Structures are given as structure tokens and as C-alpha cells.
Amino acid sequence: MKINILFYSMYGHMFQMAKAAQEGVNEVPGAESRILRIPETLPLEVLEDMGAVEAQKQFADIPEAGMEDLAEADGLIFGIPTRYGRMSAQWANFLDQSGQLWLKGTLIDKPVALMSSSATQHGGQESTLISTGASLMHHGMLVVGLPYSFQGQMGVDEIVGGSPYGASTIAGGQGERLPSERDLAGARFQGKRLAEITRKLSSAK
């Protein structure tokens, strides 16, 4: 049972969430997981101006994802940072390349879990997760959320990401806030849940 975890990250937040999700996946017997990164589309000078070049070195050795990584997987996890209430342009560019998969119906009934991040608490995480889920339904994919059985999203005692639509984290305006342990726990929970549901669907075929 193959679970591929695809992420885009500017400062490393979604990379940390992807690694946590992989930990959850690996708790499920029979699950094989890989982390892959979405190709960068911004020019180097823009990344330098945004102070992202050094941060991106932490995952520079992670292989880039391609359409074959969507097709081969039994289940998928997408780490999608928010840009103005929607998916980042890098993710949009990547998914725009999936037309042949759509024509063939390759992704129909394939489970997928979504995670996100934003600079602020109300910076569009939920709209990004909802709109991305709607897009993936055009592929016939089965979106696996983060139910309230993950109690970590219920608290109000600290800044915390997470919603029924997926795990998430708040990065800060300059990317200065790293994912909290509660945010990472949500990613682990969702990763494990995605793998468990994938296993059930695979055994039912």
C-alpha cells in the first residue's frame, strides 16, 4: 500500500507537517510512504528577496513530484500553503498538468488528505482546503478530513491550526512561527487516518 505525501513549502512549515503526516502513515501496518516536493516556479531573485533560499535548503534533496507519483499511489496527502485564500501557484501549476489523469479517470476513488498553512489565524486555511477539495472532486477523489475525534483542534488556550477540512498551521507574516506540537499532532492523526482508510478501500477491491 503506497502513500505519497506531496508538499510545497517556502520556509519549511509544510515540510514539517509532511514529515509529521508521514509518521502517522507509518503507524499503519503495510503502509509504504514517500515525501515528494512540488517544483518551485518562482525565480531565484524573488526567493532571495523573500528570504526563502536558505530555508529551502532543508528539503532541497527531496525528489520533485510528477504525475506518475499521483497515479502510482494508493493514497495521497497534499501539503498546500495558502496564498490569499487559495492554493499556492506552485500547486495550481502542478495540478494543471493532470489533464491526462483526468481523461483516463486514473484518480477516481483514490483517497486524499489535505493540509495547509497561512501567515495568520484567519488567513485562508479553510478556504484553501475547501476549494482544493472541490477541485480534486473533479478527479473523483475521496477527500479525507480531520474529524473532531482529533481533540487538538478544539482548544482555545493557544494559537492552533486544524479544522474538519484538514490539519494546518500558522506560520507568521515572516515565516517565524514553526508548527506547534498540536499542529504536528493533527498532521500525524490525519496521516494515520488516511492510511487506515486507504487500507480499507484497497482490501475491498
Results as ranks from 00 to 15, higher is better:
residue 86 R to N: 15
residue 160 V to Y: 06
residue 197 I to S: 09
residue 171 A to S: 15
residue 123 G to N: 10
residue 85 G to L: 08
residue 200 K to E: 09
residue 85 G to V: 06
residue 34 R to W: 05
residue 148 Y to F: 07
residue 76 L to I: 14
residue 31 A to D: 02
residue 85 G to R: 02
residue 164 P to A: 09
residue 121 Q to H: 01
residue 10 M to W: 04
residue 7 F to Q: 06
residue 167 A to K: 08
residue 109 D to C: 11
residue 95 L to M: 12
residue 34 R to L: 11
residue 148 Y to P: 00
residue 46 V to P: 03
residue 83 R to V: 08
residue 12 G to R: 02
residue 72 E to L: 10
residue 39 P to G: 04
residue 88 S to Q: 02
residue 203 S to N: 12
residue 162 G to I: 05
residue 69 D to K: 01
residue 84 Y to W: 02
residue 131 S to P: 01
residue 173 G to E: 10
residue 43 P to I: 14
residue 101 L to G: 01
residue 132 T to A: 14
residue 29 P to Q: 00
residue 151 Q to W: 00
residue 16 Q to Y: 03
residue 202 S to A: 10
residue 174 Q to G: 03
residue 39 P to M: 02
residue 151 Q to G: 13
residue 153 Q to S: 07
residue 1 M to S: 15
residue 199 R to D: 08
residue 178 L to F: 15
residue 169 T to C: 15
residue 143 V to A: 11
residue 122 H to S: 11
residue 183 D to K: 06
residue 195 A to N: 08
residue 58 Q to N: 05
residue 16 Q to G: 06
residue 194 L to G: 12
residue 102 W to Y: 15
residue 22 Q to V: 01
residue 112 V to P: 02
residue 184 L to N: 12
residue 184 L to E: 12
residue 90 Q to P: 15
residue 86 R to L: 13
residue 130 I to F: 15
residue 133 G to I: 14
residue 16 Q to N: 04
residue 109 D to M: 05
residue 126 E to L: 10
residue 116 S to R: 03
residue 17 M to P: 14
residue 109 D to V: 08
residue 99 G to W: 05
residue 16 Q to M: 13
residue 140 G to R: 03
residue 7 F to M: 08
